[in-house]
Amino acid sequence: MVATDSGSMGRRIAQARGSAGLTQEELAKAVGIDRSALAKIENGTRRVSALELARIANTVGERIEWFVIEAPPAVVSHRNLSAPGTASPLIDRILERAAWNTEFILSHDDRLDLTSPATQPKPHTLNDAEEAAALARRTLGFDTTEPAFNLSSRFSDAGLLPFALDLGPDAADAAVMHLRQGGVAVVNGHLQVGRRRLAAVHELGHYLFAEDYSVDWQIGERDDDDMWEARVDRFARAFLLPSAGIQHHWNLLRPQHDLRTAAVKAASRFRVDMSTLARRLFELCLVSQGTAQQIRQFRTTRADIVELNLLVHDELAAPHLARAYEEAVVRLYRQETISISRATDLLFGTWNEDDFPGLPNLPESAVRNLV
Rank of each mutant, 00 (worst) to 15 (best):
T125L: 05
S107F: 08
I91P: 00
H124R: 15
L106R: 09
S116I: 11
R93E: 04
N127R: 15
D109W: 07
D109P: 10
E130S: 15
P89Y: 05
P123Y: 06
D128L: 01
E103N: 14
R93P: 02
E96C: 11
N127F: 15
I94T: 10
N101M: 12
Q120V: 12
N101P: 12
A129S: 06
A118L: 10
I94P: 08
N127V: 15
W100L: 06
N101V: 10
L126H: 15
A87M: 11
L114D: 01
L95P: 00
L90G: 11
D110W: 13
T119Q: 10
D92I: 10
L106M: 09
P123L: 06
I94N: 07
P89G: 06
T102S: 04
H124P: 14
P89E: 05
W100Q: 06
D92M: 10
D113T: 11
T115Q: 04
H124C: 14
L90W: 12
I91T: 01
L126K: 14
D92T: 10
R97T: 05
I105T: 02
R97L: 07
L126T: 14
R93Q: 08
L95N: 00
I94E: 07
S116E: 12
A87F: 11
T115C: 04
I91E: 00
L95Q: 00
T125W: 02
I94G: 07
I91H: 00
N127D: 15
E103W: 11
R97Q: 09
K122H: 14
A87L: 12
L106Y: 08
T115V: 03
D128G: 03
A132T: 05
I91K: 00
A129C: 05
D109Y: 07
E96A: 11
H124S: 14
A99W: 00
Q120M: 14
T119S: 09
N127G: 15
P117G: 02
A132N: 07
S88G: 01
L114M: 02
L106P: 08
I91S: 01
E131H: 12
E96H: 09
D109Q: 09
S88N: 01
K122G: 13
L112V: 03
P121I: 03
L112H: 01
P117C: 03
D109T: 07
Q120N: 13
T115E: 04
I91W: 00
L112W: 02
D92R: 13
A132K: 05
A87N: 10
P89C: 07
A129W: 05
E103A: 13
N127I: 15
A129D: 04
E103C: 14
D110N: 13
W100S: 05
A98F: 02
T102I: 04
P117L: 05
E103G: 13
L95G: 00
N101D: 11
L106G: 06
L114P: 01
K122M: 14
P89I: 05
W100A: 02
H108R: 13
D109E: 09
D113F: 11
P121V: 05
D109R: 07
S107A: 12
N127W: 15
D128Q: 02
A98W: 03
S116R: 14
P123C: 06
R111C: 13
A118V: 09
D109A: 09
L112M: 03
T115Y: 05
L90T: 09
T125M: 01
L90Q: 12
A132D: 07
E131G: 10
A99I: 00
N101K: 12
R93V: 05
